[in-house]
């Protein structure tokens, strides 16, 4: 049972949290046509590394806020906790982010809205 430090509430027992799976998966916009195969990468494919993993957690039995966690899936060490919409700052999570197979894919490129439309990405 992990202790997770919610950025809004402080250290709490894992039982209060829900894991939301892999972080930093860009969602391709429907209007940006990509192939079914590339869309499937976004929709279905999730990484399951042995070691450092960037994942999303939610303080479901607390403040209900989402945040990102860089966690070692073997040692369960929590290396960094950082806000949604931001990138990790510590060296090893930063490297894991950059090394992810999702960077610069068709799905990631299709997550960007054309300039004349409002909208966000994570």
């Amino acid at each position: 049972m992990l202790i997770i430090t919610c950025p809004f509430c402080g250290p709490r027992d894992e039982a209060e949290f829900a894991c939301g799976g892999e972080a930093h998966i860009a969602r391709p916009l429907a209007e940006n046509k990509i192939s079914d195969a590339h869309f499937a990468d976004y929709l279905f494919m999730r990484d399951n590394p042995k070691g450092l993993f960037l994942e999303r957690w939610r303080h479901s039995a607390g403040c209900r806020r989402w945040f990102n966690v860089a966690r070692d899936t073997v040692s369960h060490e929590i290396i960094e906790i950082y806000p949604m919409g931001s990138l990790p700052k510590k060296a090893s999570p930063k490297a894991a982010y950059k090394a992810s197979w999702r960077r610069d894919t068709a799905a990631e490129k299709a997550a960007v809205r054309s300039p004349n439309k409002a909208g966000g990405s994570k």
């Binding site: 209900r64 806020r65 989402w66 949604m84 966000g120």
Partner: peptide, 15 residues
């Protein structure tokens, strides 16, 4: 409710 919060917080924080 969780589903809606997830999208608001993680995908569309600008809304």
């Amino acid at each position: 409710l969780d589903w809606m919060e997830e999208w608001l917080q993680t995908e569309w924080p600008d809304l």
